[in-house]
Amino acid sequence: MRVVIERVLVSVALLALWQFLPAIGLGDRFFISSPVAVVSLIWEWIASGDLAENVWITAQEALLGLVIGSVLGAVFGLACGLNNAISRALLPLMTVGNALPRLAFAPLLIAWFGFGLSSKVVLAASVVFFFIFFGVYSGIRSGSGLLVANARILGGRGLALLWHVHLPQAIGWIVAGLRLAVGYAFAAAVIGEYLGSDSGLGYLIVYGKEMLDMTQVFAGLAVVMTIVGCLDVVLRRVGTLARR
């Protein structure tokens, strides 16, 4: 309990420093804005409904990307995890694909899919895909061969084997991959919006940047990070529950 109070105090002190530094001549208010200005802008957005509208757009992109990327990632992950021939053909490509700076591919996808929703969904899905692919693949491959062998001797086959033996062993990995994927899905949607859009949280941020309005940049980033942070906390809970 004491720790919580101390942490709050430290955070408040830092915010106060941010607020009052320009007053004593350190830092330019124009560049660093202030916490009060950021909070009041967010409040304005809430009051005018702008926040809900733009959050909804970004969330749609991120969630659609999450679903599509997860499903494809899981399918390919299962195929590679369970079949050696498929794994030999695809794993090297996946490893290289995973190493690529995929968020930087946003301009290409915008060129292909346009300014609207779909380019961000594809970008988010392409990022999510690899997290889930490697989550499922590693989960299955790192599982105990002994358990699988024993289950097969006991007569386990096909879907039953997958459901009762492979997936329970992989669940920890999958949840860990999913946790990372959520943050990246949002980041992908936001970065996609930076590079070509007319709405969404990323649009608000990048518009602030074009207008040299640091308050708007901070406010937009604060909203994105709050959403991702809250989702992360929820998924961490789910992760600990799933591992039981």
């Binding site: 830092l14 943050g183 640091m214 992360d232």
Partner: peptide, 20 residues
């Protein structure tokens, strides 16, 4: 708390902030 904020999202989204 600062570490949590730092870790909340992929840092690449801070690009507009950095450029500004």
């Amino acid at each position: 708390p600062m570490v949590v904020v730092l870790n909340a999202a992929p840092r690449a989204i801070l690009a507009p902030f950095a450029v500004l």
